[in-house]
């Protein structure tokens, strides 16, 4: 029996406005009922294949932005107003039914708490199957094949499908979530502080994984974090969020080496040790390809090589203790 496709073929440009040519362009205000707006006239865009890091203090609205982009903020008691252009379509104008066609298929989300993001009552295989069937009911029987492929991407064996969330570590659970997020090869992956609950070694593995996904699957990533070091190592571009607005944005080198906005300077200055920050600056200089297009082409620095193998005259300090610094940050 032929099954009717649940989603219309929507991924075409419906407008010629340059604003709509970005992969995702947000112009929104958002907040929670009875409280001041968390995002106030925020304007942010992300290009195809780009890793954009969104940095801000706790409570600055980073997680609200992630949910607002998927029109999920209402489920947390919030509201969103404005425009969310994705692949030329204003998602704000879509019905909940049409919006479901984008969620998980074209835009995926990875939350910061892997332990609570997986349904503890269901086997991982069941959760993969449901995530597959949600968008490909006509190919339901193929779910295992695609789930195993997604698990392979995140370096997990296929037998994880038989496990329950309680039987995997935090790091493995985060990899499982990422595997579910890439099940339909989305154009955009929104990662909301995906490493904040993980130890430094696992963090490094997850960052490498993001870099690999970006390079090989060409998935754009909106990486939301307050961890400057991970941002520096992964992102192509950084946007600084303060009081619900993007106050600064630019290439990684530009933001870290020549911070323009006072808040950006405060963030950089908040690094625990000034000599360390100098080292980081030198490091960035030596490591980064200044031309952002070239960076996009070559992928993020994280995946390129060991940063400390780079010979740079500006790096005068000895090799810093990365693990402890990530912990402090």
């Amino acid at each position: 029996m032929r099954t009717r496709s649940l989603c219309p073929p929507p991924w075409r440009n419906r407008a010629g406005d340059s604003l709509m040519n970005s992969l995702l362009h947000l112009r929104i205000s958002a907040g929670y009922t009875g409280r001041p707006a968390v995002l106030d006239g925020l304007d942010l865009s992300i290009e195809r294949g780009e890793i954009l890091a969104l940095v801000g203090q706790s409570g600055s609205g980073k997680s609200s932005l992630a949910l607002a982009a998927l029109k999920l903020l209402g489920y947390k008691g919030g509201w969103v107003r404005g425009e969310v252009w994705f692949e030329g379509v204003d998602l704000m104008k879509l019905s909940e039914r049409d919006m479901r066609c984008y969620r998980g298929r074209r835009i995926s989300l990875v939350l910061q708490s892997p332990a609570s993001s997986l349904n503890p009552w269901l086997k991982l295989g069941t959760q993969f199957r449901e995530a597959w069937v949600a968008h490909r009911p006509e190919e339901a029987s193929l779910w295992r094949c695609h789930a195993e492929e997604a698990l392979e991407w995140v370096d997990l064996p296929a037998d994880f499908l038989n496990r329950r969330p309680g039987q995997v570590s935090l790091g493995q659970a985060q990899r499982v979530l990422i595997a579910m997020a890439i099940l339909h090869k989305p154009a955009l992956l929104i990662a909301d502080e995906p490493t904040s609950a993980l130890d430094v070694i696992t963090q490094a593995g997850i960052l490498q994984l993001f870099a690999r996904l970006n390079q090989q699957l060409k998935t754009a990533i909106l990486y939301i974090s307050h961890d400057l070091l991970s941002v520096a190592s992964l992102a192509h571009r950084v946007a600084i969020l303060e009081q619900g607005k993007v106050v600064d944005s630019g290439g990684v080198d530009e933001i870290f080496l020549y911070p323009a906005h006072p808040f950006t300077r405060r963030l950089i200055a908040a690094l625990p040790n000034i000599s360390w920050a100098d080292s980081l600056g030198g490091l960035m200089k030596g490591l980064r390809v200044v031309d952002s297009e070239a960076t996009m082409e070559n992928g993020p620095a994280f995946a390129v090589k060991d940063p400390f193998a780079v010979k740079d005259p500006t790096v005068t300090a000895s090799r810093p203790d990365l693990d402890s610094t990530i912990g402090i940050l």
């Binding site: 949910l67 998927l70 999920l72 489920y75 947390k76 479901r100 066609c101 984008y102 969620r103 998980g104 298929r105 995926s108 989300l109 939350l111 609570s116 993001s117 997986l118 349904n119 503890p120 449901e130 995530a131 949600a134 968008h135 979530l177 579910m180």
Partner: peptide, 10 residues
Amino acid sequence: YMLMARAQGY
């Protein structure tokens, strides 16, 4: 996890 399920387009 319900939020994640929604984000996956259930």
